[in-house]
Design a protein around this nucleic acid. Structure first.
Lengths: 253, 253
DNA sequence: ATATACCTTGACGTAGCGTCAAGGTCAAGC
DNA sequence: GCTTGACCTTGACGCTACGTCAAGGTATAT
């Protein structure tokens, strides 16, 4: 079986540009070229591409992948181990960043607390009550900060209407999912509509949309039992179905 | 006090190239230029640079920083909040990556080699079968399934005993939570014990422990209804309670 | 006058492609 | 045999935040 560039791209779910780039950097060369100069890929290239994409999924750099897939006796175990360390470090840095950002947020919030006074009225009342009771002042302030932090982030930033729309949308996702799952086909219109509703729903809590993030969340739906349980309530296997639909949704266009 | 480009660079600990770049993108213009065309910065620019570098430290993009430092009445609180969300998402993706890398490592290392090989063979076979038919989104989704299946062997990589302990631990978290919530006090011993169990439970699915991650997850328990529903099954308000307990737990030393 | 320390603009390189642009090729229908 | 449209080619810019030369002008001390 032979493939032109686009056929291989469709098969693997990547763009032709990507394949041309891989050719350019000698990561994946076509088996041969047709008389007209077209790239022709064979079965061996399909197999090799599978390996490449697998390692790409793991976040390895293409240069690394090149050595891994070319030297069959390359110590990929060590390469993966090194990669893991890098990722761990990256995550630690991210954690540091996040705490710094959070500190800044709560610090700035402290200054402008008065401005948002009314918004926080209810929470403040609760805080005061709590304070009166058992928490020591130190814990109280931290706890309070956190509470305000979280509330502000998730709910208080939404207006009442927004919040209602948010929950309504969630219901629609569930209803639509229940409908779609009956078709049994994640690429059906109904399923794709569900995925689109889901994307809209995400818009309420996520700062911006990205296919990658959407797909990443979809993976969590099957990987994490808590998510799975939530969707499977509607219909057994619904989580998996939703995940499939989202994958297709994000890969289109 | 006036500064040439290098003096300012030394003062702030950044390169002259960086300053020239900031000039180029209109992030930080010099106060004036000397007769020979040298960039001359004044005190105002020093101050502004402080702000710029502060936000840079937090990982914001220069474009964002530009709007923040130029519009004095820009809502930087919201910008920071959005930024935080982005970072959290990034962290989730990183976590997913890391677990996948780890799964791959242990799969390649372990004796499950054969199983994996078979899976991979089957995966390749499926590709061949698929291409006999036609190309389209449906196939792409299957392709995705296989990839995920393979890398997603998170549970399969656990031994039977490990898995049983994992589920047992989860039950203990729920039972302990049900107990603790009756005290009504997230700082109570019972609640703190629950948080500790929860940390142990995390150890099964998370490669390494960090307070930030633990706390981040706790926030999700209340922010995301799916998590909340899972814990509230045990007792109404249990999710909020667990989150409070975890916050206290992570803030202790 | 010369050395040297500092300044300028310009331009390429980075990772991994997305996205035109200009132009050749192939199969199908008329 | 011609047109159309789908598919192919190479080439080149764009994206982030600069690092790193390079070629050449300027300030200052000796």
């Amino acid at each position: 079986m032979e493939y032109t560039i686009q056929k291989l791209g469709n098969l693997a779910g990547i763009s032709t540009r990507t394949l041309r780039y891989y050719d350019e950097i000698d990561l994946l060369k076509p088996a041969r070229k047709s008389s007209a100069g077209y790239r022709i890929y064979g079965q061996r290239e399909v197999d090799k591409l599978q390996h490449i994409l697998f390692y790409r999924e793991l976040g390895l750099e293409l240069e690394q992948i090149k050595t891994i897939v070319n030297d069959s006796d390359f110590d990929y175990a060590e390469a993966l181990e090194e990669h893991r360390k890098k990722l761990i470090i990256k995550r630690m840095q991210l954690d540091l960043l996040i705490t710094n950002v959070e500190k800044t947020i709560s610090a700035k919030k402290g200054e402008s607390k008065m401005a948002n006074k009314e918004k926080f009225e209810g929470f403040k009342q609760k805080l005061v009550d709590d304070n009166e009771q058992q928490y020591g002042s130190e814990i109280r302030s931290k706890y309070g900060d956190e509470l305000v932090d979280q509330s502000n982030a998730k709910m208080l930033n939404m207006s009442e209407e927004q919040y209602q729309e948010f929950t309504r949308l969630e219901q629609r996702v569930l209803a639509s999912l229940a409908d779609a799952v009956k078709t049994g086909d994640p690429s059906s219109d109904a399923a794709q509509q569900t995925a689109d509703l889901h994307r809209q729903w995400l818009g309420f809590t996520w700062p911006s949309y990205s296919k990658e993030a959407h797909q990443g969340l979809a993976e969590m739906y099957v990987a994490d039992e808590r998510f799975a349980a939530y969707y499977d309530k509607a219909h057994p296997g619904a989580a998996q179905f939703l995940r499939d639909a989202i994958v297709i949704y994000t890969q289109q266009e």
